[in-house]
Amino acid sequence: MQTLNISDVDFAEPGNMSCPGCGASIAMNLALKALGQDTILVIPACCWAIIAGPYPMSSLKVPILHTAFPSAAVTASGVRAGLDMKGDTKTTVVAWAGDGGSFDIGIQSLSGAAERNDDIIFVCYDNEAYMNTGVQRSSSTPYGSRTTTTPGQGWKKTRKKNMIEIMAAHGVSYAATANIAYPEDLIRKFKKARELKGGTRFIHVYATCTTGWGAPSEYAVKIARLATRCNLFPLYEVEDGITYTLNEKGDTPVDAYLNLQGRFKHLSLEDKAGIQNQVDKDFAVLKNKLSVC
């Protein structure tokens, strides 16, 4: 058995309100190991607004400012501005939002903060739907997925928004994808983001939701790992919107990933072949970006 080189210092309490097998909970635990004590979290409406605990409790050992759904990024910008006026330069301000609070209702505020290059880290923990409200589709929900608002034959026929490319296009100093199934890589990226002070940094974390995806809770990490191995969720970093670094290269067919999840079980062989084709094309586009750098 391989031992991971991960600190055993935790900033998350052992008990919280997440579902069994919650990828978002794993993501927070790992991220805080990298970010450390001098961190202020800003959390909008999302699963983590619940997981962090109701008044007067908290499941985390760092300060949390809860804010409204559309406002994670700019609330963090405000916290940063306040700390700057107080002369606090050591604290890292982190907005921690789900895919809805990043891709959909939060994208205006996020784009604004990134364009102003406000000194914050924005983390999107992506579970590919509105899970806290009971699995409704978001613009992060992938093609082929069933949710409670894309049910039956109405399964989602449009693609997932390419969020990291949107953020890279803002020219931010650091944009990266990370995955709960690659903890050392994830921690390295959070540490790197923390060190790159002075502007907006964006980390897109793949965070399984076995409850919403129709999979056994013990498959949370396995499914996440397959997402990267199948090149559905490639792990890479973009610096200044220009320099691309690929961290993992997948070689597994998408069937291995799709077949583990109830949300895709209605798909025909033809549908799956279509998804494979799209994944191959997307990965080729990404590899092209590597070669020009």
Partner: peptide, 10 residues
């Protein structure tokens, strides 16, 4: 950060 608590939560 030296006195962590949650604000404006559920």
């Amino acid at each position: 950060p030296d006195n962590p608590f949650a604000l404006f939560q559920m």
